[in-house]
């Protein structure tokens, strides 16, 4: 069921995929990418791992329950919107801080990024929730 080559490669691919998904998440504001795509990428990585090692091992690697990830994601997204309420602006208004870093340059951090992180987590959670469920059905 779990071929050796696939197992070995997936072990090394998993962290690379995850790192890549984070990059995609961050660069989404200025280049193709974003929370949705990043989330799908990360989820694919874990599904690959699940196909190689089985659902249980993949769940262990994920460390979080997918349902927890979903709720965490939704909460993050809602929280990013509430921040602007505290300032007196309508729900989900973007708030930004600009930091000048030596070497790296200017860094824009804002609530839309946090919102995107929420989407990222939700998408990972939902995809894995469903696919782990289906996968374990077969095992």
């Amino acid at each position: 069921m779990y071929p050796l080559i696939f197992r070995i490669t997936s072990r090394y691919l998993l962290p690379i995929f995850l790192l890549f998904s984070l990059i995609v998440l961050y660069q989404g504001h200025n280049a193709p990418g974003g929370g949705f795509i990043g989330g799908l990428l990360a989820a694919t990585a874990f599904i690959m791992s699940a196909l190689a090692y089985g659902g249980k091992t993949a769940r262990k690697k994920l460390k979080f329950n997918p349902a927890t990830l979903v709720m965490l994601g939704l909460l993050t997204a809602v929280f990013s919107g509430i921040l602007s309420l505290l300032k007196g602006d309508p729900f989900l208004t973007g708030l930004w801080i600009h930091i000048h870093l030596p070497l790296i340059g200017e860094l824009h951090l804002g609530t839309p990024l946090l919102f995107d992180l929420g989407i990222f987590l939700t998408v990972i959670g939902i995809t894995l929730w469903i696919s782990f469920g289906l996968l374990e059905e077969n095992e």
Partner: peptide
Amino acid sequence: AYGKNVVNVILVDFRALDTLGEIT
């Protein structure tokens, strides 16, 4: 909105409420 990727900016800023609805 400090974003060059308009598609993403629409998703997470201009139309964030829609997106929130979608993930829900």
